[in-house]
Design a protein around this nucleic acid. Sequence first.
DNA 1: TTGTACGCGTTATCAA
DNA 2: TTGATAACGCGTACAA
Lengths: 327, 327
Amino acid sequence: MTKIRDIAKRAGASIATVSRVVNGSGYVSAGMRARIEAAVRELDYRPNAGARAMRSGSSRMVGVLLPALDVHFFGILAHTVEQALFARGYQAMICSTAESPEHEAAYVGAMLAQQVDGVIMAAVASDGAGVGRLVAAGVPIVAVDRALPGLAAVAVDHHAGGRMLARHLLDLGHRAIGVVGAPDHSAPVQERLAGITAELAGAGLAPVAVRLGAEHGFEACRALADALLGEVLPTAIIGTTDMAAIGAIHAAAGRGLVVPRDLSVIGFDDLPAARYTIPQLTTVAQPVREIGQAAVERLLALMEGKPALPPPVLALRLVERGTTGRV
Amino acid sequence: MTKIRDIAKRAGASIATVSRVVNGSGYVSAGMRARIEAAVRELDYRPNAGARAMRSGSSRMVGVLLPALDVHFFGILAHTVEQALFARGYQAMICSTAESPEHEAAYVGAMLAQQVDGVIMAAVASDGAGVGRLVAAGVPIVAVDRALPGLAAVAVDHHAGGRMLARHLLDLGHRAIGVVGAPDHSAPVQERLAGITAELAGAGLAPVAVRLGAEHGFEACRALADALLGEVLPTAIIGTTDMAAIGAIHAAAGRGLVVPRDLSVIGFDDLPAARYTIPQLTTVAQPVREIGQAAVERLLALMEGKPALPPPVLALRLVERGTTGRV
DNA sequence: TTGTACGCGTTATCAA
DNA sequence: TTGATAACGCGTACAA
């Protein structure tokens, strides 16, 4: 690794001068600057991030704590957050907790050790000790996808989303509505379910069946929906995520039901996968990419001590495709 | 941030002793150890990673350079790599280049600055200067998903995969076979195409049409397949990725073709999405998660200067589902 | 306009 | 068994 001393020697300057040109601070003559810049280029010099952070107190790194990266939703979120951070000159430290509290704790420790300047997180459990340690250390935090008590948050109104799901089906004349969802420990899923129940209650109804599972993979969701259909036969099924809805479509097909003729199905998220089925999935879209960008904006404002930005307006949008119809 | 001096003061020890217990090196009396461990716990002390890296020469961080995180395949790969690294006590520094050479260059710089102990990468372009800088800096590298000249690689044999795709269709009696793929600049996609062509040539055939596009999203793939079907009418279409194949299924449906009766479709990867369509997609599966784990294993061996492990056996597997049938 | 020297938080060497 | 201290690479007062 080439270091500042190597550049100084090569350019016939002192390390202080090299530091000045690298950081664009203080006065340096044009000739000296040119020599130093040349040396930097020739030796591919990179200031040691650790030493720099130690001196300056800022690592220019932001921790991004997500429950998973192999779940498409979070992969997309991670991607946009990372791109937004990059554009502002920050390095993302992306950590996937694999839904495990121990992982989360370990990662919080790693972030603290790395002296991250801030953290964007979608916590598995809101009571997680991880958040507390971060807060205690005075690290600015923005919660994403799901709110965290006492913290700035960038998240869609999942409860309202749940209402939209139910409302759409009610408008279509459905009265016998089932709900399939996963993972059951996910706060957004629970909030959507509450929204569904509330909207249905407003019409004097209740879900004819609710099936929540721990696993959110395709097969688990399909099995969940299949179990539901084995017990009751609603005219519509709400998936609390697109994945759950897609599982429901397959469960229906497995039982010889034609969607949407015999059964309407609606999902939530509008992931790319919502377009994969035939007919394509009707769903309530949440603006994942805007969420990521808004979270980064808010975090940077927090980090720079700027006045808190107003909460972002994150619109949910009903995307009517082919899996819902009149009863 | 609490530092080693705070612990020393609190436990009535010297920083040297604290360092010893924290790192489990050297002799420390039981009493002293207990006092220090208590202080560490009470103050939630984390050794500063930067200072540690500076002193010890190792950052215990591994760079993971991927073209994207919002593409499900890479999200899964990132996840497994990250988990495997975590299990071995390493921190992953995940960077998504968004397929841009400038991003890649910037990230390589950041990795060098962070003093990463090694790098796992799926390079956008094999001629990338990024690789050169990493090699020049003596950083151990393992290429993943696609080989890189002169480097250890963990990747499936995409050419053989291409042959399997064609072989399956030939065995089913197909003679008029089209190919749809994206992104066209992807080396794996090109290799699979070469494999397809080779296998077809062995039967005295050539693809009736090949359509490669730059974008690999659903809509782009669908449009590509639709254009192909507008020109010729093969009895089967090979997608060089599952995404392309799913696009083909939709293009076929859009033209009133029934899969697999009128048109067989086969994909590559076996992503979760391969199960979302009805009928479910026949595809050649590559073991993504094994790839990620094997890459980590190989990199750690390299980093520890161990003898190079033999190249991993990464089996491709034909998964016959519902989208292919006899002509 | 440039250079010297100190300190950031650790680890490791050497003495005690 | 413990402690004082010299690096590690950098940024920045301060001196020149």
